[in-house]
Design a protein around this nucleic acid. Structure first.
Length: 502
RNA sequence: GGCGCCGUCGCCAAGAGGUAAGGCAAGGGUCUGCAAAACCCUCAUCGUCGGUUCGAGUCCGACCGGUGCCUCCA
């Protein structure tokens, strides 16, 4: 039985959907005005894992995430750069999508944009005004918080407390400092849409109510986002939506992911302590970053540091290497010990129990270590059939965690790999004993063939016990990320990431 | 000031009343010409002080330290 931590009830609630077999989920997306950082990546990955597990459980998942493509920051930025606001927003929306593609986040059902849902937004604001929940003043239409009796139920605050903490008001016409803008009247030079209140644009919170209600309907299952959105964003969404529909709940389960922090401070643009996904992806494979992001419970803060990322890289390599061995065994058609069915079943059970406990990916990772420890320790005795059985389970686990490349051999690392190899050859030619042999290699061949010839030459030296030469060759290759592994069967190579790149 | 969260081995991190998962690092082995990889072994009583309980990282209280939200933010 799946249990999820619900911010509204502050409890691990049993997950029951509105409709049988279907999950409707809305996750607050980004305001695309700059490069997305790893915190945005974490949110995307977290809800992607949740999405994937729900599908594993047999649900059909209707998952959407918005782009808030009109707001103060976008207007300010586009004015600074002298570009059209929509072009700016679409540029960064595209970068965001590219980045999370690299993290192997599934594309969602829909990515609605605020500016493309103006009709629905106006309809809701108008309705709230008609029902007496909203009022118009000189600079816009505001939601009257005191009219909504349950205001504060999500963030667990009282209106009185909030009022004490409220900042000095900009517009004295507001009835209450807590009232927030549903619709902002246009200032000169700002993008604007026609409305019953003249030219203007949506306030910050209304677009999420409009898009979620439009595409998912009232009372949908999951609403997610960063925990910094609990107040005021999600609190206001509830107030708007439940007042508008006249029904509750607007959302059945409120899920919130923890922030990424750096040196214990929240990663944010204003503190300038952020790492963009684009820069991290230059140094680390997207799946390594993904693994790093799911090593800790999704609702806890994640303290970002390179050392932990490096640890994730090692763990990823271990999974990868172990899976390759298992695949080789599975394809070998080799007789051997059969794994007890009970073992597989127990692993499957602990996988599901972990995920059922509010998506405990950390425990799933521990399980993966257990499985691979077993397969590695028994790789010589196990039958191919057993390997296939283990692989079947791993396929499910990896598909839920969102790893598509574990077990693939990396054939070439990047485009400059051949250049690197030629550099190695050049360096090795400084050794007179090697020069002649290496010059026989045809440099017009592809990188894998060249590499193979180098390894063959080294093999000859090893046979003659010329370990000085073979060690020299091994060291040179290691510098470009080629690690040689000698065994009785011959020399295998694998490609690993180096500091300079993948 | 209000509402929260967190403090578990050098580091990362599960566990949430029944006697401390996992990973990285470290040390010792097996294997290897040496490595690498893999495997085996070793490695914590849970911020402090009280309380509840047969039994507490796990519940309650106080305190110490850190941090989030209350303003835009995944």
């Amino acid at each position: 039985m799946l249990k999820v931590y619900n911010t509204l009830t502050r409890n691990f609630d049993e997950f029951k959907t509105r409709e049988n077999g279907k999950v409707y989920m809305y996750v607050c997306g980004v305001t695309p005005y700059d490069y997305p950082h790893i915190g945005h990546g974490r949110a995307a990955v977290v809800y992607d894992v949740i999405h994937r597990y729900l599908e594993y459980k047999g649900y059909e998942v209707f998952h959407i995430s918005n782009f808030t493509d009109i707001d103060d920051k976008i207007i300010k930025r586009s004015n600074e750069l002298g570009v059209y606001y929509k072009d700016l927003a679409e540029k960064y929306a595209a970068i965001y999508l590219e980045n999370i593609d690299a993290l192997n986040v599934k594309r969602l059902w829909k990515y609605p944009r605020a500016t493309e849902e103006i009709d629905k937004i106006i309809e809701i604001v108008k309705s709230l005004e008609d029902k007496g929940y909203a009022y118009e003043i000189s600079d816009g239409v505001y939601y009257e918080v005191r009219k909504f009796k349950e205001y504060g139920k999500l963030s667990h605050r009282s209106v009185e407390e909030l009022r004490k903490g409220a900042r000095i008001e900009v517009n004295p016409e507001k009835k209450d400092p807590l009232d927030f803008a549903l619709w902002k009247k246009a200032k000169p030079g700002e993008p604007a849409w026609d409305s019953p209140w003249g030219k203007g644009r949506p306030g910050w919170h209304i677009e999420c109510s409009a898009m979620s209600l439009k595409y998912l309907g009232n009372g949908f299952d999951i609403h997610g986002g960063g925990e910094d959105l609990i107040f005021p964003h999600h609190e206001n969404e509830i107030a708007q939506s439940e007042a508008y529909t006249g029904e509750k709940p607007f959302v059945r389960y409120w899920l919130h992911n923890g922030m990424v922090v750096v040196n214990k401070e929240k990663m944010s643009k204003s503190l300038k302590n952020f790492f963009t996904m684009s820069e991290l992806l230059k140094r680390y494979d997207g799946e390594v970053i993904r693994l790093y992001l799911i090593t800790i419970s999704y609702h806890k803060p994640l303290n970002f540091d390179m050392e932990s990322l490096e640890q994730a890289r090692k763990n990823y390599e271990y999974f990868n290497e172990s899976k390759i061995k298992l695949n080789e065994l599975a394809n070998a058609d080799k007789p051997g010990t059969e794994i007890e069915g009970g073992k597989i079943a127990a692993w499957k059970k602990s996988f599901e129990e972990a995920m059922d406990s509010d998506f405990n990916t950390a425990n799933v990772l521990a399980l993966l270590f257990e499985i691979f420890k077993f397969s590695n320790a028994n790789i010589v005795s196990l039958s191919s059939g057993s390997a296939k059985k283990i692989n079947a389970l791993l396929k499910d686990i990896f598909s839920v965690l969102g790893f598509a490349k574990i077990g693939e051999k990396r054939e070439t690392i990047n485009l400059s790999f051949k250049e690197d190899l030629l550099k190695v050859i050049k360096n090795l030619k400084k050794n007179p004993e090697l020069a002649e042999k290496l010059s026989k290699i045809s440099l017009s061949e592809d990188a894998p063939e060249i590499l193979k010839e180098i390894i063959d030459i080294r093999f000859e030296f090893r046979k003659q016990k010329r370990f000085d030469i073979s060690d020299l060759m091994r060291d040179e290759l290691k510098k470009i990320g080629v690690v040689l592994e000698d065994s009785k069967e011959g020399t295998k190579y694998k490609l690993v990431m180096t500091d300079e790149g993948k």
